[in-house]
Amino acid sequence: MATKNDNFSSLANIRKKRIRLAATVFLLPTFLLIAVYFIYPVIDTFVISTYKWNGISADRTFVGIQNWVTLLHDKLFWSAFGRNVIIMVFSIILQIPLGLFLATFLEQGGKKYNFLKVIWFLPYLMSSVAIAFLFTYALATNGGIFSSLASLFAGKKVTVDLLGRSPHALFTVIGVMAWQYTPFYMVYFLAGYGNIDPAVYEAAILDGATRRQYTRYIAIPLLGPIFKTACTMSLIGSLKYFDLIWNMTQGGPVNSTELMATYMYKLSFQQFNMGYGSCVAAGMFILITVIALLFQKVFVVKEDY
């Protein structure tokens, strides 16, 4: 009896060791790259955040936690964070359901709708520079699409100023972001559908389910883990968003689209305030990581078959 148990435990030990070895080998390249490209910069950022430094000079002054104290009371930072959260919430409730809808449509519609797949995907292929330019014009008060349409319906010249005023600008940008990123989630959910074991589909059809019933009652629930990662990606993406905002509004008008990332960028690279800029970056990093990890814990889906 005892020997058998020993055998078992040593076998289990060997197995454990083997797994550990395999895991290490598989993870090694990632560890190396992350160490070089992430760990050092992140540590550096935290170190710089304790200095008063213009970003270029050889001498910098150690100020301890002074920058962090400022950050805690920095209205600009916290309101930027608030806008990031608004963007996050709206990105998740706009992009993901829309993406799921489009993917489901294509999944249902079959091959004959493949042309739609390509057309729908176009926005994601365009660079932020192009998108910013096209939307600045589409939204322009002078000859833009919305103003022209409104004038057409009203029968007189009406201007719809979507980008130039405080509350509207942020929501306009959220709309443009949804336009840009929804296609990605469409492709993502399509891949999710493609990932479902065909045996599941066959079994469902054999049991007399229609394709639509299969999608609704079997396929979509099976997308659980995919759905969760999609939300996480959208969440992190919205919290560190920079490109389109920078190209479209640079945070204006009157800070109404200023986000954490644009605020950090201005401080670090334009206002010679690298010390505080790094502090903002570090704060941003902490906030995003905490929110993302909390989301992982709170949003539990069945992950295994």
Binding site: P41, I236, K240, M260, F285, L293
Partner: peptide
């Protein structure tokens, strides 16, 4: 795994100077 999520949260601009140096 948590570390991977954390690395997703790194703002790209903080890495510009270190990567340039490297």
């Amino acid at each position: 795994y948590a570390g991977v999520v954390a690395m997703m949260s790194v703002p790209m601009h903080v890495t510009l100077i270190p990567i340039f140096k490297l």
